[in-house]
Design a protein around this nucleic acid. Sequence first.
DNA 1: AAACGAAATGTTATCGATATCTTGATACCG
DNA 2: CGGTATCAAGATATCGATAACATTTCGTTT
Lengths: 319, 319
Amino acid sequence: MADLAQLAGVSKITVSRALGDSPLVNPETRERIQALAREHGYKLNISARNLRLRRSHTVAVIVEMKPSTDRTMFDPYPLVLLGGISQELTAAGYSVLLTTRQGATAAAVQAADGLILLGQGVHQDAVRRFDKLRLPMVVWGARSQSDAHVVVGSDNRLGGALVARHFIALGRRRPVFIGNPSHPEIFERLSGFVDALAVHGIKPLLMRRDDFTLDSGMDAVRSLHARKVGFDAIFACNDLLAMGAIRATLDLGRSVPADVSVVGYDDMPLGASFLPPLSSVRQDWQEGGMLLARKVLALIEGESANSESLAVSLIVRST
Amino acid sequence: MADLAQLAGVSKITVSRALGDSPLVNPETRERIQALAREHGYKLNISARNLRLRRSHTVAVIVEMKPSTDRTMFDPYPLVLLGGISQELTAAGYSVLLTTRQGATAAAVQAADGLILLGQGVHQDAVRRFDKLRLPMVVWGARSQSDAHVVVGSDNRLGGALVARHFIALGRRRPVFIGNPSHPEIFERLSGFVDALAVHGIKPLLMRRDDFTLDSGMDAVRSLHARKVGFDAIFACNDLLAMGAIRATLDLGRSVPADVSVVGYDDMPLGASFLPPLSSVRQDWQEGGMLLARKVLALIEGESANSESLAVSLIVRST
DNA sequence: AAACGAAATGTTATCGATATCTTGATACCG
DNA sequence: CGGTATCAAGATATCGATAACATTTCGTTT
């Protein structure tokens, strides 16, 4: 910047102002300096600026990246969530620092201005860990009574309720829920489902499955059959489980949706092409990411931010 | 750090050395200072360190995050790739700065010590753009004759050849390739496929499809049928296309694999659960990510790095 | 006992930007 | 015409760490 100042015949500070579009410099001078900067391929030293401004203009996003069968945060979705986050942060002049839970102790993370945590983990364990960094933090997941931090997520209770009402409307009386309610989000889905059914005096059966896979879904239905449990509707807490459940149901010689209604969650693209096309609850991941970003930015600016739930919608196809 | 120095009764530089585990300080002094730092929750100011060291210890990873049907870099895989990258970089004390192609002009990106580009884009367009940043860069994709930069990717030619040999072994004579060879990686798969078939005097038919979706795969087969083109084997350049092709083939009353053999690419988890279980070419994304990271790190250290291809394997299931 | 050398620590300068406080020049007012 | 706004630009200090060079301390050598 000093060199550029000499070239332009002004002082460093004027260059700094000109490049920052400050109204304190003469528009002509500003133009001239900016042209000179472009011409010489000048690039601001971000580290110096960060040091001086005491801001890194960086938000750390903590995500689990190892594929694993017992997680919701997998599949293309987190990537879309990341896309939303990235879009919004970039627009505000911030960058995304991506970390795993393990790597979150890395130096650069403590330099971040804020934190976005994707997935609370079973029993909020992840949340507690990162609370200690004392950074503005926003979490993707489900609200819990006890937390002090901001949570953004889709309205899982509503998702569960929508499915329940759908089943009721279809006259189903013996619904089953498949999934792992240890995840706060899944728990909310289950609880919305249970409550909405309770209104009609129906109590669903919980088939707890830890893996979010197709095989796990098949296994759940086979196990129901083996135990001679009757059921006429299945709410699976993700689409893979739902597809597995459908396949196993068909294998057992029962019809979907004539004998058994099935609804999944996430509305993954493949679901629409499944045979039969899968009904599912859709969440808007992109919007969720953008909302997460806006909330951290607000916190960073010292403003307050509230937890928020995004509406979900039930996509009814053929199951 | 000055405060800490005063507390310990030493100078700033001694604190700096102690925290950096420098052998220049007395082990006892080092212990004492480190204990003091922990006790007071001292955190290094990364921006200051970056400024002084002229290193940000950050690698920018450029990835496309918007879901789109015409891309290979989608589905869970880039996330696994990112996982590999992240793991390796974190171990080396580096962080991952995640950006989209649009956001890659952002300030923080130019502060990065290196660049990893996931996906070359059609006709290398993305590569050329980022070459201009003059940063150590490593690209995930396919090697081309003309590029000066380091490319890491799986051995797509080998993938194509494996499938070709598999078809030959099965006695297939009229193979079809489905995909979009404008992507360098897909082009390599096709070219490996074509070359290996040529040895046996067979020339495959190219069904160009731009979307990497199940519907697109179905459409391809229907179109073949409508044009009364005979075929007894299909190599689809990803698993979704393959599944679509299988479904359409079955719909037309032909058997898979009795009448038509089908092989996909990527070996996505769902493929194993597909009916019939899908044969596919598997690439090791995690390892690929780690390799990418190691290469940029080498370049950053001023060492040289060569382009490299990772072996792939053909997983034969029932198609 | 003087001289030397290694170990431990300190002094100073520096990385590159920006905030704050000043200064200088010009315009405008009654 | 003196005095005050207004605008443009400069001087200096500072953000927090570390590299290079300087110094002190002590033990060892001859």
